[in-house]
């Protein structure tokens, strides 16, 4: 047992694929497993000093010749599920940012009800002036940077999951 056996044996390189009773190559079967399972399999056991009988650790396990990226490339149902999950996650992040922007803009006209706002503030300018000219803008800068960071993290995690970082 030099490496974990795949649940469905695939033809090794050099072997001729087994023919099915109807004469064609059998449809490729797909491992259905939780992504965690795959991550767990891909990591060598912590106590194995020389894992897998002397062979160096050669990256994530790809014994079947299959990985998640294949599903994406071949537009399988599973690949579509992956894509949809990422899109939903990205949409949630985007809606969060959009909600923040719309909320702040909706609140702006309420500045009219700040008591005593018309009086001159620190540098001889009224307080609403300072809030509108310089107070909201840092919030936008922060929101834009945060949104970019969150979306990039999600994409990075996705790329790692499908093994194409």
């Amino acid at each position: 047992m030099t490496e974990p056996r795949p649940s469905v044996p695939e033809p090794r390189p050099g072997e001729t694929p087994a023919l099915d009773p109807h004469g064609g190559t059998p449809p490729r079967r797909v491992v259905v497993a939780n992504p965690r399972t795959r991550v767990a399999r891909s990591v060598p056991p912590p106590d194995a000093g020389e894992p897998y009988a002397g062979e160096p650790y050669a990256g994530p396990y790809t014994g079947t010749g299959w990985n998640y990226a294949t599903d994406l490339d071949e537009q399988t149902e599973l690949g579509a599920v992956f894509a949809r999950t990422l899109i939903r996650a990205q949409l949630r992040t985007a809606l969060g940012t959009g909600g923040l922007v719309l909320g702040v803009v909706a609140l702006l006209p309420l500045l009219a009800f700040v008591p005593g706002g018309a009086h001159a503030g620190p540098i001889g300018l009224p307080l609403p002036w300072l809030v509108l000219a310089a107070g909201i803008q840092p919030l936008w800068v922060y929101a834009a940077r945060r949104q970019a960071r969150l979306a990039e993290t999600a994409e990075h995690d996705f790329a790692r999951l499908v093994g194409r970082p």
Partner: peptide, 24 residues
Amino acid sequence: GTDTLWLPVAATGGFVLLVAFVTA
């Protein structure tokens, strides 16, 4: 008066929406 300063605030906010929904 000051209430027209809302427009630049909204314009900058529009770019935040652009980052979130459109560019990538």
